[in-house]
Amino acid sequence: MPYVIAPGPLRGRRLSYAGRWQAAQLSPLALTIVIAGFAFATPREIALSRLLPAAPALAAAMWPVIPTLLLGAGCLLIMITLGFFYADLGTEYTSAAIVAVTLAAAYASHVRLQREEVLFHIRLVADAAQKVLLRPVPHRIEGVEIESLYLAAQQQARIGGDFYEAADTPYGIRLLIGDVRGKGLSAVGAASAVISCFREAAYDEPDVTGIVHRLETSIMRYSAAFPGQDLPERFATAIIAEISPARNHMRLLNCGHPPPLLVHNSEVRVLAPTTPSPPLNLAALIGDHYVVDTAPFAPGDQLLLYTDGVTEARDRTGEFFPLTDWLRQQGPLRPRELLDRLHGDLLRYGGGRLGDDIAALAVRSPEAVGEQGPQAPGRD
C-alpha cells in the first residue's frame, strides 16, 4: 500500500497531536468551570457570568449535539444559581442568551457532523481510488527489495499526479516512476492512463523503448478524449528502469525526469542520461528519439527513484532539499528504513508542508560475495 502512516518518530508526533486534540475537546467544560468559579469568587459588578454563553458556542466546534445541549443546560443552571446570590445580576438576559446560543450551537454541531460524515465517505472513495492507481508494489522480487513512498500535496485529495509501479517480467524487473504536470485531482486521470498502460506493456514489450511508445500513445489518447485549456501543457516525465534477470546491471530510459541516484559502497552516483529523451505527450513536438542507458547494479547496490517534489521541497529560506548530500549521510539502510527517514526529513525540512506531490522507489540488490565495482553509465 502507498505510504500513509509514518512510523517511528513521525508516528509518535501524530500520536502527540491526537493527545493534544483530546485535551482540547475538554476546553468547553474547562471554560465553563473557570467562568463559574470566577463568577462566584469575584464581585458582582464584574459580572463574569455573562461569558457563560461562550462555552456552548465553543462546544459546537468539537462536541456532538447532545453533549452540547447538556453543557448549555449546565451553564443555564449555573446562571440560575448565581441569580439566587445576586439579585441584580441580569439573570434573565444572560439565561436567554445561554438558551439562544446553545440552540444555535447544537444546530451548528449537527451540520458539522453531517459534513464530517460526507468527508469521511469521500476519503474512503479516494483511498479506494489510490489503491487502484497506486496498488502495493511487491516488497521483494527474486531477492531484490523494493519499497515505495507516496505523499500527496493536497491532503484532502489523498492522491495526485505522481505514480510508480514495479513488475516482475520475463525481461527482468521493470520499474516505472513518473510525474504528470500539475498536482492533485487534475493530474490523476493522466497518471492513471500511463500506469495502466505500463502494467500491460511491461509484460508484452521485449524492449523498454517499446514500452515508452505505448505510454506515449496512451497519454495522447487520454488528452484527446479529455480536452481542456491545459491540453498543450499536459505531459508527464517518467523513468523506466529494467533490472536484468542476472541482477548485474540495469537499463534506464529517462523521459525528462530527475535522474535516479545509485549507492554503491557508500558512494552516491547521479545516473544522468547521456542524451535527454522527450517527456510523454511531447514526442510529436520535439521528436521521439529515445535513448537507453546502462548502469551497474551490483550486489548490495541501492537505487533511489523519485519525483521532483522531493528535490524541489523548500525550507523557510527557500533552499531546495539537498537530496544527493542527504543520501550520502544516511549510511547503509534497507529500502523501508531509507524511505521512512526521507519521509520524516522532508516534512521537517518543509515545515510540515509539501509544495508538490512526492513519490519515491527504493530498490536494493541482494548481498553476495564478490561485489562488482561501479562503472560509468553507457549508452545501449
Rank of each mutant, 00 (worst) to 15 (best):
V180T: 04
A201W: 00
G210E: 05
P227R: 13
F226K: 10
R115P: 04
I141Q: 07
F226Y: 14
G160D: 03
A152P: 14
I141Y: 00
D230S: 14
A108Y: 01
T102G: 02
H110S: 09
L185T: 05
L89Y: 11
S148C: 09
A108K: 04
R199Y: 00
A193C: 13
L176I: 13
A128T: 08
P227D: 08
S192Q: 06
V132M: 13
R181W: 04
H139T: 11
A129Q: 06
L89Q: 06
D127Y: 05
E145K: 12
A97E: 12
Q130W: 03
R135V: 02
A193I: 01
D230R: 09
A190G: 08
S223R: 12
H110W: 15
S95V: 03
T94W: 10
Y203G: 00
I98R: 10
E116P: 00
I122L: 13
H110D: 12
S109H: 04
V111Q: 07
F163K: 03
A202H: 12
G184K: 03
H121A: 08
D168N: 06
H121E: 15
P170K: 08
G172H: 03
A225F: 13
A236C: 14
A236Y: 02
V125A: 15
R112L: 15
L175W: 06
A126H: 02
